[in-house]
Amino acid sequence: MTEVTMNVNGRKVTRSVRGNELLVEFLREQLRLTGTHVGCDTSQCGACCVHVNGELVKACTMFAAEADGAEVATIEGQANADGSLNVIQQAFQDYHGLQCGFCTPGMVMSAASLLKDNPKPTEEEIRHHLQGNICRCTGYHNIVRAIMAASGQETPAVAAE
């Protein structure tokens, strides 16, 4: 066991971890932050996306020990200080960018990292950026629209609206 200290969603935590303990296991099991999900075991679905030192990573493909000393941000820390949904979260609700909700935390974290680097992405850039986040429900249509809306852009027109 190794002792690690990290700052998770602004809270300093120190815990013992196993060598083979994944960051996602640490978050879910030790910190009970169950918003970060596990949807695959080959590092492809992106349901486990979190930010480590400001960068998007898959928490299922990084060991907790490697995050020693890091700043970690998860979905649980994304809402505004007053508890209201942040601009990306709100756009996902407004544009129906989620259905079952399982991929959603990873999608929101992924979208946040995109908009940090690219505040006005095109539809193509959004789709390219999301290639590591699989959603089985939405067909991505409304996820793309939500991210465009969150970035203050017009959303692609859709019939029957």
Binding site: I75, E76, L85, Q89, F92, T104
Partner: peptide
């Protein structure tokens, strides 16, 4: 959506 978007 609120609970799904906030990880709860």
């Amino acid at each position: 959506d609120v609970r799904f978007l906030t990880g709860t």
